[in-house]
Design a protein around this nucleic acid. Structure first.
Length: 318
DNA sequence: AAGCGACGCAACCGCTGTGAT
DNA sequence: CATCACAGCGGTTGCGTCGCT
């Protein structure tokens, strides 16, 4: 036996609320409260509405403590941070923001923040190229979701693939600008899904490596890298590129970011003394700090996070 | 000015969790 | 323990508005 409907849908009004209905609901709730029963409330209040509709209208719009209007940069950061750790638990996320409703946060995420942090949708042509493992002079674009398959099927198996090519803006913004030595091969990695710390296998430790060579064995994310070289990462239109090297201008433990019209380049030290997750946090906050004024650039930050895992779960030899 | 698509947001739908019986 | 009713939640839809052609 199915559950009885919460109201007689044929006899309730649907669609947008009129100011009169709003006033009726507010008046009733101010005088009587919900009485712990939304289903019977509309009848008592004299509204031809479903109880669920009344509840939603009150909670999402009419409540006096609701904050209407644009979200602040601080709220953006909180939402993004919580989304990373909690996923789409909008009610929990909203509870951390004064005066915001789950519906508000959800809508805001779906319409604005998702684009801001995850960037533009990936073009189909990139998907078609997602399994390429060739060497060429053109940048290989590898689709975001493709690494999930790599990860699932081959123990983070990029070890036999050397995505060497030249990143276009690395050629333009080369050594003179202190970020990438263009004579070095640039490796392009697929971007994996974002992994949570709980998914890491902290028992896996990367072997030591000289510059230009990182050897990662087994499956799982490597929590600590021991190579002493510094390298650079570039992002553009949802794609990430990596360039290994010995650029001494870059700190071994802090990231540096250079942004361009079509993406950014980030330098980082591979002997970062913390876990990859800590590095990720640093990476993320550093990136946000450095690029917060450029939405196009900032939109790639989460891909950056993901990409970072990709680089650490792969073997790179050149 | 009209048509059209993109966007934003309010509202709805249906499932799940929970407490009462 | 099983069932029921309701609240709460997240995903989705529908519609008004805006901007571009």
């Amino acid at each position: 036996m199915g559950r009885a409907p919460c109201c007689d849908k044929a006899n309730v009004k649907r669609g947008p609320w009129s100011p009169e209905e709003d006033a009726t609901l507010i008046n009733y709730l101010e005088k009587n409260g919900t009485g712990g029963n939304w289903i019977s409330l509309p009848q008592k209040a004299g509204l031809k509405r479903c109880g669920k509709s009344c509840r939603l209208r009150w909670l999402n719009y009419l409540r006096p403590d609701i904050k209407h209007g644009g979200f602040t940069e601080e709220e953006d950061k909180i939402i993004f941070s919580l989304y990373k750790s909690l996923g789409s638990r909008w009610s929990v996320i909203a509870s951390k923001l004064q005066g915001r409703t789950d519906n508000d946060v959800k809508n805001y995420w779906n319409t604005k923040l998702k684009k801001k942090f995850f960037g533009k949708p990936i073009h189909q042509s990139a998907i078609n190229n997602s399994n390429m493992a060739t060497t060429s002079n053109s940048t290989q674009h590898i689709q975001l979701s493709s690494l999930s398959d790599h990860v699932n099927n081959s123990s983070y198996g990029l070890s036999n693939q050397n995505y060497s090519s030249t990143l276009p803006f690395a050629q333009v913004h080369g050594q003179d600008e202190g970020i990438v030595k263009t004579e070095q091969p640039i490796h392009h990695f697929p971007l994996p899904r974002l992994m949570e710390p709980s998914e890491f296998d902290y028992n896996i430790v990367s072997s030591s490596a000289t510059s230009h060579q990182q050897e990662v064995s087994g499956s799982g994310v490597v929590p600590l890298l021991t190579t002493s070289s510094t390298s650079s990462i570039g992002f553009s239109d949802n794609y990430m590129s990596y360039s290994g090297g010995n650029n001494n201008d870059l700190s071994a433990t802090t990231t540096t970011v250079e942004s361009y019209d079509d993406g950014f380049l980030m330098g980082f030290g591979l002997n970062y003394p913390y876990s990859s997750y800590d590095f990720l946090q640093d990476f993320s906050s550093n990136f946000h700090e450095k690029t917060s004024e450029e939405e196009v650039v900032a939109s790639n930050s989460t891909n950056g996070n993901s990409a970072f895992y990709a680089s650490f779960t792969s073997s790179v030899t050149n």
